[in-house]
Design a protein around this nucleic acid. Structure first.
Lengths: 189, 189
DNA sequence: GTCTATAGAGAGATAGAC
DNA sequence: GTCTATCTCTCTATAGAC
């Protein structure tokens, strides 16, 4: 793994753990085992490095989710698989976490990957739900775009409450409650 | 308003806007119009001041929520009123926001008010739901504790996605989807 | 209670040698 | 490409005068 790659991965890790405000160039260099000059040769500074790291994390999140959405099964099966997939709950979401960072939100360029990631996620979930409805798997009463937004919010909020509690339990309960609410709308086969 | 009070309120605002890591004693002093010596006379430092501010914010959040929960009306009416109450969505939740902060979560003392606040909130919502179920307003199929966790997560996650989008729209959609899912379990009168 | 002085450490870069 | 030196601010206090 070359220096530039190590710098990006170290930045991804630190942004996840400490956010943008809590991450210093020096800390990145230490973790990447790269020198000062090395870092400023490859990137123009903290914002540029963060942008590369955020884009990388966003792509990874998207690929991970897409694997569940495009798997075989009914709409509700795929969404359930996505909700119940293994997660390191107490670490939180590497993208959602950054939405709380004042310097990320203040920068149009750094915020955009976050916006696009969640827009894609909501759109993809809405598509799966609409598909399920068209196939008669789900009741007609639901608006796919709304329910998709609810699903994303339950995951993001689940992380928040779990971190506050120092335990994954609130996350699991929130997902359990969501699945129970969704099940009422599944047309039993 | 005396100096100590101004220090606490300024800290509350800054923790909300910039988090613990992003808030410096100097910034607090500036906003409170208090000098260095003044701040360190009243508090032992940044952690102590933050603790006072977090406890204050937690109490305010609780009072605000309790007003909705103890209002007259059916369970679903009170929960709907709580969900739809006016919020400054893009500012996020003053408590939930801190759950992303590495230094808050690393400190048992600073994390505890967050844990207690959400535990209270989930318990109170579960109580309202259980009451509604006992009165025959809600279907028996739901586990109050789970649905309560889902409701809290939708709000917290709604803030996250809204901030990422730079717009309150995802928050409103998520709440709309949750209300639609809940409505299916309301026993119509 | 509030003020000013001081201080070691880190943040976030720039410059120039190799 | 990488290294070391240097620089200006800021962070988070402590000390002592008023």
């Amino acid at each position: 793994m070359d220096t530039m790659e190590r710098l990006i991965r170290s930045t991804q890790e630190l942004l996840w753990e400490r956010g943008y405000v809590g991450t210093s160039p020096k800390a990145i260099q230490r973790r990447a085992e790269a020198g000062q000059g090395s870092m400023y040769h490859h990137f123009d500074g903290k914002p540029g490095l963060a942008l590369a790291a955020v884009r990388r994390s966003a792509g990874e999140l998207r690929a991970e989710a897409e694997a569940r959405f495009s798997a075989p099964g009914t709409a509700i099966e795929r969404i359930t698989a996505y909700l119940l997939r293994e997660r390191e709950v107490l670490r939180g979401c590497p993208i959602g976490r950054l939405a709380q960072d004042p310097d990320i939100v203040a920068s149009e360029e750094l915020r955009r990957p976050l916006e696009e990631t969640f827009a894609w996620l909501r759109g993809r979930l809405a598509g799966v739900l609409a598909e399920g409805r068209a196939r008669g798997e789900l009741s007609d009463g639901l608006v796919p775009e709304e329910v998709a937004a609810t699903i994303v919010a339950v995951l993001q909020g689940g992380y928040v409450v779990a971190r506050a509690a120092g335990s994954a339990e609130p996350f699991d309960q929130a997902v359990g409650g969501l699945l129970a609410l969704l099940r009422a709308h599944v047309t039993l086969s």
